[in-house]
């Protein structure tokens, strides 16, 4: 269970993991907005290739990402199939033309447009997944907090991010300890042997002690921080703050370039589609 975390707490050795938080945040931010705003295969394919490259650049262990990859592939496939079942004409509706390949039954027919639409949607979710994955694989909580602070987020919020992420392993350990202790006393959480409400009640017997013990630590942590004069000044510095390296400047330059492309794309494509109309691009 200790290996269930995807996020690392110690910075890794690769170039991407050694980057400063602000560079990674800027790259991720621009690319996520770009992926969200576009429904366009001309944007999504390069994005997918670039982000997959970044994932490979973090040299992930296959063990770590295997489960995630299968999970997202399966849920995404199910989602696309459901989309087809609910509205088989989603492609023609948003593109405006219809070329049926073959009829299946009733209103279900397979058209080129629907295939294209569902394919782009699949690619879009995969793009978003890969973009999130390289970020999660390469960032540590401290880098994230420091990066956010560099982006002028109030430092109390940065503390929330760093402190919260650092508390997670402890909380998970407590959760498992309480869980095992109560199961040893005969608490049934198995789906086959107890009804939903009984299991809910049993889950409560784990969660309530967890909530109470965890929040009991709040006073200690807050006092320790107050004693070190947390929040007494308007600014804050971070231990891990380093001068930007060449690779950082490269990453920031790429982010800036992408931002320009994004603005150009918005002006050129997004603003020309009607409000409410689908943003999908289709080769004609």
């Amino acid at each position: 269970m200790n290996n269930t975390f995807v996020i690392d707490y110690v910075p890794g050795k690769t170039k991407l993991q050694q980057l400063q938080g602000i560079s990674k945040l800027a790259l991720l931010g621009v690319m996520l907005i770009f992926i969200m705003i576009s429904f366009d295969i001309r944007v999504l394919v390069p994005m997918f290739i670039f982000n997959t490259g970044l994932v490979i650049a973090t040299k992930p262990s296959w063990q770590k990402i295997k489960g995630l990859l299968y999970f997202i592939l399966i849920t995404n496939t199910i989602n696309v199939l459901l989309m087809y079942l609910v509205s088989p004409d989603i492609g023609p509706q948003s593109i405006g033309s219809k070329h049926v390949i073959f009829e299946i039954i009733g209103r279900y027919n397979l058209s080129v447009e629907t295939l294209f639409y569902l394919g782009v949607r699949f690619l879009k979710i995969m793009c978003m997944f890969v973009a999130s994955l390289w970020f999660i694989l390469s960032i540590t909580p401290s880098q994230l907090a420091q990066g956010l602070y560099k982006l002028h987020v109030p430092y109390r919020i940065c503390t929330v991010v760093a402190l919260g992420l650092r508390a997670i392993p402890d909380i998970l350990r407590d959760y498992q300890a309480i869980n095992q202790a109560l199961q040893m006393r005969g608490l049934e959480l198995d789906k086959r042997r107890a009804s939903v409400f009984k299991r809910l009640k049993h889950a409560m017997m784990i969660v309530i002690p967890l909530i109470l013990t965890t929040f009991e630590q709040v006073d200690t942590i807050a006092s320790a921080m107050d004693l070190r004069l947390y929040g007494s000044t308007k600014k804050r510095s971070y231990y891990i703050e380093k001068p930007l390296t060449k690779v950082d400047y490269l990453a920031l330059a790429v982010a800036g370039l992408l931002l320009l492309v994004l603005i150009a794309y918005c002006l050129g494509v997004v603003l020309h589609t009607q409000v409410g109309a689908s943003r999908i691009w289709y080769p004609r």
Binding site: L163, Y175, G231
Partner: peptide, 28 residues
């Protein structure tokens, strides 16, 4: 009251929320 304690409570609460969301669901 936006003081150190609130910051810590939000941090710890978010961590709990995240852990419970990921690990403690009861599948129906």
């Amino acid at each position: 009251e936006w003081n150190t304690k609130t910051v810590v409570v939000i941090a710890i609460g978010s961590a709990l929320f995240g852990v419970l969301l990921d690990f403690a669901g009861i599948p129906v």
